[in-house]
């Protein structure tokens, strides 16, 4: 009970922030200050983003023959082709399955690891480094290791055999392979998210935790009502970054299955890469990129706009 009082105390100040907001004259200076701070990044993004996005959209209306050096305007043909592509159903399903799995699992696992690593234990830095190291290795090297682990009659097969299961077609079947991809991707880069969570956890106000303890709150209650609300902005952020990031994973697919058998393990980002750089179909790849961009943007906007339900702290 007491802890709830403390928790609401933590987010309390925000509720009555900026009492002068009503008077527009008082805000002009504040707005100007804000825009000044935002200007460098916004201008940079507008300029370079315009080149990047503009170029992408321009290409999406073209039929490009790279080798012959010709470009023909084809209107919406490339987009129409997306709709009629028989493989697109599987590819989109795979993409969403993979993104959903990786973003949710990634956020939970990193938070768990961060909590584990946030303890003040001797030698904890060594463990932090251990989690972080894979992020420094190239994906190619990481994938190679996993290929050995996952091969038929390899380590994974002998592990599952000890409980009389398997052998499983780790890299040969649709959803199972996507789960395997998620695990490989997760273990490689989880260190980054753990870092972000660690920073957030270290920013948790200890006076509030102590106050909670004094009030007799248990570990779980303390975590749920004091720690969680304070790190929820970080959770939201990691989740959003994971969503955006997992939409773009393709290297693993390229190195492990090449999207096959058939298109069973193809995701949208891989299809873009394949169309653009293996098949030289830049126009179609650009149209797919526009689709991917819109999907990620929409997913992120939805998460962001519904943040008030998810994030305890952003009450205003």
């Amino acid at each position: 009970m007491g802890s709830q009082v403390v928790a609401s105390g933590g987010s309390g100040p925000r509720a009555q922030r900026r009492p002068g907001r009503r008077g527009p004259s008082r805000d002009a200076g504040r707005d100007r200050f804000g825009y000044l701070l935002l200007a460098p990044q916004t201008l940079g993004l507008l300029l370079i983003g315009a080149v990047a996005i503009g170029g992408m959209i321009e290409l999406s209306f073209m039929k490009v023959n790279v080798l012959a050096g010709t470009r023909t305007f084809v209107g919406l043909d490339n987009y129409a082709r997306i709709l009629s592509d028989p493989d697109m159903g599987v590819i989109l399903f795979n993409t969403f399955f993979f993104v959903g799995l990786l973003s949710v699992a990634g956020t939970i696992v990193s938070l768990g690891l961060a909590i584990l690593l946030n303890q003040k234990l001797p030698g904890i830095n060594v463990f932090r480094a251990a989690i972080f190291i894979p992020a420094l290795i190239t994906t190619v090297a990481w994938t190679l290791v996993w290929r050995f682990i996952l091969q038929p009659q390899g380590l994974m097969d002998s592990l599952t055999a000890t409980v009389d299961a398997g052998p499983f077609p780790w890299l040969r079947g649709g959803w199972l392979t996507l789960i395997v991809f998620a695990v490989i991707q997760l273990t490689k880069n989880v260190g980054i998210n753990v870092m972000i969570f660690l920073a957030a956890l270290q920013g948790v106000r200890e006076d509030l935790i102590d106050a909670g303890r004094v009030d007799g709150a248990g570990r779980w209650t303390t975590f749920r009502h004091i720690v969680l609300p304070q790190i929820s902005p970080a959770i939201l952020m990691v989740f959003m970054l994971m969503v955006a990031g997992s939409f773009k994973v393709f290297e693993l697919v390229l190195l492990l299955t090449n999207g096959g058998p058939g298109v069973q393990t193809t995701v949208l980002a891989f299809e873009i890469f394949r169309q653009a750089f293996r098949l030289n179909d830049l126009g179609y790849a650009a149209a797919l990129s526009v689709l991917l961009f819109s999907l990620v943007l929409a997913a992120s906007a939805i998460i962001w706009l519904s943040r008030r339900r998810l994030v305890f702290h952003e009450t205003n």
Partner: peptide
């Protein structure tokens, strides 16, 4: 400042671009 939410989403939009599709422009 006014419009902060819109600016936020705008600033974030870069990370949604797949690098391989903007590399050519």
């Amino acid at each position: 400042p006014r419009g902060a939410a819109a600016i936020f989403l705008l600033l974030l939009s870069g990370i949604f671009l797949p690098p391989e599709s903007v590399i050519i422009p």
